[in-house]
Amino acid sequence: MNSARRTGDRHALRDYALFAAFVAPNLLLLLLFVYRPLVQGVWLSFFSWDLISPDWEWVGLDNYREYLTDSASHYILRNTLIFSVGTVIGSMSLGLGLALLLNLPLRGREVVRTILFTPYVISGAAIGVVWLFIFDPRLGLLAALLAKVGLPSPDWFNDPNWAMPMVIIAYVWKNLGYTVVVFLAGLQSIPGDLYEAARVDGAGSWSRLRHVTLPMLSPVTLFLLVTNTLSSVQAFDMIRVMTQGGPLEATKTMNYQLYEEGFVRFHVGTASTIATLLFLLLLATTLLQLRTMERRVHYS
């Protein structure tokens, strides 16, 4: 019995060594390139530094105090929220609708699926440029279409009330393909006989959507909610190309502000403060989403 346990221990030890050997290279890279900068970023947020000078000036929590009491940052926080909520709701509702359509046995749906997914793999900067042309109030496609129905084009680039919707529309368009494909995969994994059982039970198409499709999609929906939220907060390239955060900071999000503070104004301490706050905000949001949604998610 004693020797058996010792053999067991030896086995466990060998297994563990093997596990470590496989995991170590990856873990090392992660530590070096993800966790070290993360920790360093937090560390930097306690200093005032201009990216060049050899002296780092310790300022403690001053950066946080300054940032959190500045009304400009409140406005930017609000922008971030509007952008995220807008893009997440936009791409999830449109994505579900399109996925439901593409799940029907219609001719040519493979082609449509490919067309929808293409923007997701194109660079955001390129897409931003294309949308600049579309939104142009004088020469743009959208202005021409609006003129057809007798409406004037909003001044997307100069009107602070229209700039944010513009960026949201462009961003949703780019990311729609991802959401559609994931929803579609979820839809196709729902067993067909559940729908047949529901039909026999007397459920119409609306009721089948509500009582079969949506609950069966709940794990996929939670996944998309989390990933879409995370990526929307990190949006940068399209904002950079389309509005540079303007007009009057109307499209400036925290991530964009971080870039400006760090690499335009060389306020590395402030940039690190924003990065740290953004990280905490995302962590809290994700945990909240997981906690509140988990109860309503059905994993079969």
Partner: peptide
Amino acid sequence: VFQSYALYPH
């Protein structure tokens, strides 16, 4: 009654 039972899992 279906062969797979087709119970609503949720």
